[in-house]
Amino acid sequence: MDRRKGYTHWIYLVPFLIFIIMTVLIPLIYTFYVSFTNMSVYHWTNYKFIGLKNYYKALLTVDSGFLSALFRTLLWTALNIILLVFFAFVIALGLNSPELRFKNIYKTLLIFPWAMPAYVTILLWRMGMFNTEFGFLNQLIRKAGWQPINFLSTDVYAFLSCMIINLWLGIPYMFTMIDAAMQSIDRGIYENAYMEGAGFWRVHVFITAPMIAPILTPILIMTAFTNFKQFDIVYLMTMQTGSKTGANIHTLITYVYDKAFVTSNYGYSAAVTGIISLIIIILYMGMQKIARSKVN
């Protein structure tokens, strides 16, 4: 009986393991293999093993552009996490107010940006809000008698514009998680705190925040990596082929895409992917360590 128990769970896992092996492990191993070959448009069928040459070439992309992209990515990740948590926390607090009516309607409306495909949202913002001729913001600026601003052509404006979209897309998920975490807090604790004279902010800073922190930690780590791997917003807003805006706000992923993937040199691209993955894994391990020590 015990022996059966020992392997039964593996039987249950078999289909999913097959799925993971086929969709994750095999492509990963194949990418690793390709990174040691000279597979490219010029060596599509006649590619051969070239050792570490691609890794050497990939490390040459670690130039000043790479380092500024890395710094920008870290800044992007930090700013977005702070703002996401702040806005989501405030919204969740508002939605948890006992006097608030029609909470479900507000929640449904607030979740809407998350339900929209990101691609559509990004292009709608690009054309509908930031466009120099027809964008809502420039219409307001014109009405005020000022010159229109090309939001996406200068680095600072473009970075902020992308961040606004990222917050628009990310807040619904974050506030849903914070809202759910808040539901698990015993109301009695608040009543006691208020009875002992604690104010609104004091209660939420010293009771709500610490109590939801353990639940939010894995979500924050995941969100940090989603932001660290940022590609679609920055690419679609400023770097799409045929619609480059002139702003240089490369993140790590857009930078290596621009440097490696357009070359159709698959061995080289695979090596670059390997190096980026290594950076992400190191950062992930570091963040986990920090998060674990904070929770403890």
Binding site: N150, S153, T241, G242, K244, T245, G246, V262, T263
Partner: peptide, 18 residues
């Protein structure tokens, strides 16, 4: 030419927009 599209776009954006 696959790499030239993007680079030329970047050149034009830096000249005309920046």
């Amino acid at each position: 030419m696959d790499v030239m599209w993007g680079i030329t776009d970047e050149l034009l954006a830096s000249i005309n927009k920046n």
